[in-house]
Nucleic acid binder design. Structure first.
Lengths: 344, 344
DNA sequence: CTGAAAGCGCTAACAG
DNA sequence: CTGTTAGCGCTTTCAG
């Protein structure tokens, strides 16, 4: 098998130096070393294509150049763009990622245990903003494991945290629709179990207030993106059955928005003519819909990059921080023209 | 920091046994051990919440219970359903995944090197079916690293391989459309750089042949899903400008299919009334489109699970195999009714 | 500036 | 059935 693995000792012998010298060149402690020796050792290393074992190195240094990534919903588009961004950023910083999918707190606790035995240098948690139990995280700092959370409540001050401003995002969407002439703007909210839902509803109210529109309970309905499509259709229909019906709706995410568009179109309505639709996420398919979807882009990639940087900096000794990112309204056709029915 | 890490020695001392005894209970070599001793050791382990270091263990056993995953296009919908499935399957089998994104052969070679230094027990490559250079993989078996490739040419007989039958998938879609009454079926193909494109075009021809329809060059156009949306619209328009125009089109993937639907609708055509549309992938948004998209589902998850099992079995000593999975046509509204214009 | 030697935490012979 | 011991491959004092 791997019996022919090259070791540092072989390099030392072939270079006719000691292992510590080889170790020194490996780790850049090469300042006051005879150029000739350096040259020779490097030569042997490259001809033998020698790569030091991270395992052995990890055992002695206690560092593995590996970061654990604990993801709440790995199959969600949103999370995946985060994983991609994180992987790229990690590798640029010289780290690898052990990716784990945790479905709940219990699972998460297990995953964390495994990650600890594997000696990761730090852990990044990326959550679905579900209110999760954090107790299994609180002893991480004491164990010398650095951690940063994305889109999740901070388990303690020793943790880094990156979030985005859901509230301002939705408020901005309301303003956008109002500026387009809409006066009856509905909001399809996500499940209450998510922190983001509260934030977004608050943003919706704030937006209405800011533009001087009244809040109407009727115009806020549940369209749980973790649930059935049928329920989204029903919620949309209920909204459109209202008198007066809304001329615009902000959906709990892009998937729901797609279904809102479809439901409206099936009723013979034009989007955005009769109904403007705004989504949340800016998923990959948003620009492909008919009409292309206006949506609140969540800065997931940027969050991932910031989280990784924060963690790497913390490994280097800096202290953790808290960062809040802005969302961005991506305006496409599903909201652009003025509503037809404004002057009803 | 982690100065308080519990070691096997401490467990041994507190249990008043030797380290090897502790090691034995850790590794289940507990058959002929006094029940009382076993009990005592276990007690100490759990009260001290001791977890053996995988690093140290890995150094001596040569195994790390870690599998490397090399993904070609991590941000693609297709790939991340694979990563999710792989992670779940891996953890069930007691493994963790180091996920790496390789953008090209060169990058891939680097990633493989890193993975080797990290001592992964095996590597899974999941490719975009791009014709990639495999030379950096061929020495893996010699180094004792097991590997299986998904959706990619087999680098050698020592590699496991899981693929799916693109050809049959597209042929089946043609038959489906023909059964619906369509006689003019177009195919929007992907880029030639992908192996899958060749397979799919072959499947298209085979399907036509099987149902007794002529192959027309005009009806096959490029709509590169890795390129611009505008180009997809143009390709669709060109198809619809043809006389006679096709009554059905199979798109190179679901994203392209979404744009085909939109382009047709913007020209005042009804889908599926005037034009039936079939996608490839069965991405998450396919059922949300208007109309819901008929599509060729690629068995990505299943492939992931098979690949993982193959790798784990290989680690356990079994030999590698080659598995070819079937695609599945998921029929939704974008193709269901009979074409209006059949009897033109 | 280089070499010898002591571990990192664990497993696996090999004795007892 | 349990204890001793020799490493796994590397880093890192500490002498020379």
């Amino acid at each position: 098998m791997s019996s022919d693995r090259v070791t540092i000792r072989q390099i030392a012998e072939m270079s006719e130096v000691s292992v510590s010298t080889v170790s020194n060149v490996l780790n850049g402690r090469t300042l006051r070393m005879s150029a000739e020796t350096l040259e020779r050792v490097r030569g042997v290393i490259s001809t033998l294509r020698y790569r030091p074992s991270s395992i052995a190195r990890g055992l002695v240094t206690g560092r593995t150049a590996t970061i654990g990534l604990v993801v709440a919903e790995i199959e969600t588009a949103l999370f995946f763009s985060a994983v991609g961004a994180l992987e790229t950023a990690a590798r640029d910083a010289g780290y690898n990622l052990i990716v784990c999918h945790a479905r709940g707190s219990r699972d998460e606790a297990e995953v964390v245990t495994v990650l600890r035995t594997k000696g990761v240098d730090g852990i990044i948690f990326i959550a679905n903003s579900e209110a999760v139990d954090n107790t299994h995280l609180t002893d991480l700092p004491a164990a010398g494991i650095l951690a940063v959370v994305i889109n999740r409540r901070r388990p303690g001050p020793e943790f880094g945290r990156v979030t985005w401003n859901d509230r301002a995002g939705v408020a901005g969407a309301v303003e956008h629709l109002h500026a387009l002439g809409h006066r009856r703007i509905a909001f399809l909210r996500g499940p209450r179990s998510r922190d983001s839902t509260r934030e977004r509803v608050a943003g919706y109210r704030r937006g209405l207030k800011k533009v001087g529109l009244p809040y109407q309970d009727d115009y806020v309905r549940l369209a749980d993106y973790t649930a059935e499509v049928l329920a989204w259709e029903r919620a949309t229909s209920e909204l459109l059955d209202l008198d007066p019906a809304p001329t615009a709706v902000i959906a709990s995410d892009d998937s729901v928005a797609a279904v809102v568009i479809r439901t409206a179109q099936r009723r013979g309505l034009s989007v955005p003519g009769d109904l403007a639709v705004v989504g949340i996420d800016d998923q990959m398919f948003a620009p492909l819909l008919n009409p292309p979807l206006t949506t609140i882009r969540l800065p997931v990639k940027e969050a991932a990059e910031r989280a990784l940087k924060m963690l790497v900096d913390a490994i280097a000794g800096q202290s953790m921080r808290e960062v809040r990112l802005d969302t961005e309204l991506v305006v496409r056709d599903s909201s652009s023209p003025e509503p037809r029915t404004t002057v009803s």
